[in-house]
Structures are given as C-alpha cells and as structure tokens.
Design a protein around this nucleic acid. Sequence first.
RNA 1: CGGGGUGUAGCGCAGCUUGGUAGCGCGUCUCGUUCGGGACGAGAAGGUCGGAGGUUCGAAUCCUCUCACCCCGACCA
Length: 629
Amino acid sequence: MIPTAREAPADAETPSHILLSRAGFIRRTGAGMYSYLPLAWRSLMKISQIVREEMEAAGASELLMPAVIPIELYKVTGRDEAYGELLFRVHDRHGRENALGPTHEEVITDIFQHAINSYKQLPLTVYQIQTKFRDEFRPRAGLLRCREFIMKDAYSFHLTVDGPGGLNETYDAQYAAYVRVFERLGLDFTVVDAESGPIGGSASHEFMVNAESGEDKILVCDSSGYAANVEKCEIGERAWSFEGEALGDLAKVHTPGMASIEDIGRFMKVKPANMLKTMVFDAGESLADEPSVAPGGGQRWVVAVVRGNHDVNESKVRDAIGGPVALADEKEARAAGFAIGYVGPAVAVGRDDVLLLVDPDAAQSTDSAKGKAMFWAAGANEADHHVKFFNWQRELGGLLDSSDQDASARRVDLPGASARRADLPGASARRADLPARIRVADIRNANAGDPSPRAEGSILREQRGIEVGHIFKLGCKYSDAVGFGVLDQDQQRQSVIMGCYGLGVSRTLAACVEMSHDENGIIFPAAIAPYHVLITLMKPDDPAQQEACARVSGELAEQGIDVLIDDREERPGVKFKDADLIGLPVRLTIGDKALAEGAVEFKPRRSAGKGELVPIDRVVARCADVLGD
RNA sequence: CGGGGUGUAGCGCAGCUUGGUAGCGCGUCUCGUUCGGGACGAGAAGGUCGGAGGUUCGAAUCCUCUCACCCCGACCA
C-alpha cells in the first residue's frame, strides 16, 4: 500500500505536502485531516519511539488521557473562552458538551489534584503521545498545520521553582531531552526564546526546524548565541531623542481614503521609514493606577508609535505598560475621538486618558545618518488628512514639558533602558525627563539587521523555522484555577507549580521533509525513514536475483536494518523514480550486470549519480556505515 | 472572519463566452512489442458535470440559492 503518483493533488503547495502525498505517505481525508498510510505510520512510530526513550530517560512516565473531555474542565480555567472556536465541541446523546482535547493541562491537573496531596509525592512528570484536535480557522500545508494531529505532551508538578525537584530542574531536563530527540532524528534545528501565548506561564522555548518554508520568523545573534521568535525577540539598545529642530513648517495634506502606510507613502512620496505609524490600543483596567491629570480618571488608551516600516508587537506593548492590552475596537476608538487610520502622536496632546508609547526608532528628531533634522510624516488626527514635517518637540511641546511630580517615583524600568543612553550620539532627552504620559520603549518586532540585545555591536540575522516543540514554565496558572495545592514540610498549603512540554510528532515528519528534499523527492535521515534500505530488483522473476535479494535482506535484518523490497513488475525507470521520491537513505539495485560480478549497486539517497558496485558480502557493512552517520 | 479562486472519470485538466451526442493526459484492465531513470501500439472499463431549485423543446454551459474545498490576510500549542 504505497500509492505513488506522478502528480500531486491540486491543493498541495508546500514541499512536504506535495512529496508526502506523491510518495504515498498521506491522504487527505477532510479539511486539515489526514490519513497516515503505512509508510507515514512507520516514520511516526520511529519518531514516537525516540521521543519515548528520551522522555523515560528524563524521568517521565507515559500515560494516556481521553481525547473526549467534558467541557466543564475547560470552563474552570476559562480556556473554553480563551480557545473559543479553536476547540472542537461534541455533544453526546444526553446533550452534554465535550471538547476534543487540544492539549491536556486541565485534565492532568484534575487527575493530579485528586491523586496527589503531599509534597512527598512530588516532583512528578508524565507524558502521553496522542491525537490532538484544534479546529484551526485555516488549516494548511498538509501535515504542518492540520486540525487533527499527533502530539507528545508532558506535564510536570513541583513544590518549588528552584533547587532539587524544582520546576527549573525538570524544565532543564526536558529542554535537554528535546535537544537529544531532535539531534537523534537528524534534524537541523534552533532553540529560541518564545512567547507563552494562551497556554500561559513565565518562560518558554520553542524548538524550530530550520526550513525556508517555515511559518515562524526567528532572529539569531551569531556572536552571543541569542535566538528568539520574532514575537519575543528583544532589540538591542538604540539611541533616541525628541530634541531637535524641525525641517520645515507642519503641513497638512489631504489624503482621502488612504489609511494604509503603503498608499499614503506612494501618494505623499514618502518612504515608510519616514512615517510614524500610530496604533491605538485599549488598555482596559491595566492603567487604572497610572497617574492622571484628570481628577478621578485613569489612562485607558495606549497610543503606540513606530516607524512606518516597522510592526507594533502587542506583547511588548503589554510588557511596557505592565498589563493586558488589545488593539482598540474601531468603533469605540472613534467614539473616543481617535480618527482611526489617520491618528498621529499629537493626539495625546491635551488628553489625560492617553499613554503615549514610542519606539526608540520613532523617537527621533534628528537624522543621525544625515546629521540634519528628521523628516516625519504622520497622521493628522483628522479623517483623510496627514501631516508632513512632524517634529516631536514642536508638536508635542506641551506634553514633553509638562512636569509630573509623581512620575519619577512611579516609573517602571523599561526593557533596553540603561544609564549609558546619555552617552550615545544624539541622545539628550533622557527618559528621566519624560512625563509619565510618554514612554519610550522597545515595542516593535525585530528585523534582520537590528542590534543584538546580547552582544554589543552585533546585529540580528533572520531565518525561518517550523515549530516542532514548545516547552513552558506554567507556574501556578492551572493549579490555582482548580485549587490544587499540597501541604509542605511546614504544614503550609502550597500551590503546585507546573511545567508543560509539547512536541508535534506528525508535524516533525512534515518538517523533516521540508528541511530535507530535492527535486526528485524526499531525502530521509535514517532515524525517521520508514525503512532504511530499498532493494530494487531489476528482474523480480529471475531466481538469481531473488536469491541475492533474500540473502542481502536477511543479513540486513540481522543487523536491525529495515528493508523494503521493490519486486514490482515495472520498468526500471518507474522504480528508480519511486525510489527517489520515497527517499529511503540507501538504495540497493540487484541486476544482471552487477550480479555477474558478485556485486550489487549501492547508492545513498544523498549522493548524486549512478552509485557504485559493492560485492555482496560487503554491502551490509556499507549500509550500516551510511546509516550510522 | 475579510479578500481571491476552484468544484467535470482514481489523479491533473479542457469544455461554459455563443445551451444541442461529456472530452484530453496520467493511472487502471486486456493483448502484443519492449525492459538500467516515469516505453510504444491496439483495444477496454470508468462520470449523479458538488447539491437544490428555476428558465428552456433541450442545461456541465444561463439565473437563484446552497454546500465543500484551496490560496492570501487576520489568528495560532
């Protein structure tokens, strides 16, 4: 059952989807749902086995939880809301609602809550390998993002964060286990700092298979070894200053119907890098305690300003203000007086409900490269209008000068801030001089070429990756939600501290193909290949060839090498094409010519050309050699 | 959820503008010739044209509704 095809299904576009389909590994059964045919299943079992070995070595025990889970468990933690449409929901015959498990923090916490009641029983780590369900808005790219997939998920429980038996110890052990798993699988990967997302928790790392087609953008600093997902990546220190002369008088420009940076840039003949992109966020209650000029009032709106060619990072905005934010609802923001699409920094002037957050690259009044005043275009805070010759000091003058006695006491430490700033060229407007309603902070996504946050003078390099593993320090988020605590040595009730560790088994197979293929097909590393060696018989009916095949395959099997035999009555070309497509690490061809010399043709999939003749009694050693790499 | 697109044989597609016998390539089956990089010839099987309704003497084709799927975006262990 290896249905190979010359052409890929029309809906397949990415290499792994096309090749796994053509090579007879998978068949699409529904949108984002795939059947694993025998070849794929063998590969998945091999990946799972390595995962199992490393999990056991890291002290985790395997178990299996149900895929169908009462929705009540997810209501306890609020994740039925947080996940929303991503949860598959099924109603049983009694009308009870269940979720198909997208991940099992709630279930495992529930189990442990009832089973564990003493610190003496901790720490514990368990894992399972199971089908997970997520009703993705847009499944795509075959196995890379589907609605039903195979995942290894592990969970650990601790009394403490540090020290023996603490969360950090297990987290580090899992981290190391992941590194060993992906090394053993023969994958080229990068570990990056990551955002925790809706799973929650403090620290997290993602394991990315390096592939051009990857969905995730990661940034790497070669000198320090720092690597992070773009969602998380810090940017090194950048000089900034609001002080500087204006290049010209503020000029209002009519820009009807042009709300996008691209449109305006084209119309006004301004490069995006010379525009200020201004986004309005709704901080809700996050800023309730912030100083406000208005009696009894609080700041609600966060106006974030970055350069037009940069993207605001919502997580960084959240960190900068110390609480949750969300992009403002357009209607509400309009009602509050923001001309959405045409907002500029000056909107903060005269309002006491706005916190202005400015990225260092946007907080410039002097173009240091040219040594003259910086040219800025920005929104005019009036529908269909923008302004040219924006100058921070002039346009925000009142705000920048307003002194707020409480400000210095309340100010939090911002990422990337340091005392050295004053020494940097062009830096004179010190953070300490700013009123509380303006902050300069790193609030944008990092790009290639940005300064490294870990090595002075180095810059960040960009590459793409496929997320195959993600580990989290959860803390007490789930245990507190269900009231899971144990008594410690001092008879004090302590919340149990958790970690969770995910690894996409089916995605790893696809990532492997993305990483390693050529125009003829897949090139499998030995650890993931469904079989190690393919024996191609030129004349399947020929007794001499049959005998040679039986001998070689028998000897290979004795060495623990998995053999697939192609004894189909097909023309040689067809068999060779299929062999390359399926991509097993070694191909042995048994034909008359070689056999006459007591040899078979030996060809590693990676090597180009014809392959070489190897005497039959030495071919097993050669196979073991190649597979051992 | 916004934008774009596609549903016709197992797979890949044409036919639709201008309504009139449902086609091509690959694959499958039979026979023959071939036989170390997706052979050639002859023949054969295989289709509710996504579904429902409508217009018409007549609908794959025109109209209305609907379903499914794909791509881009937004979102995302």
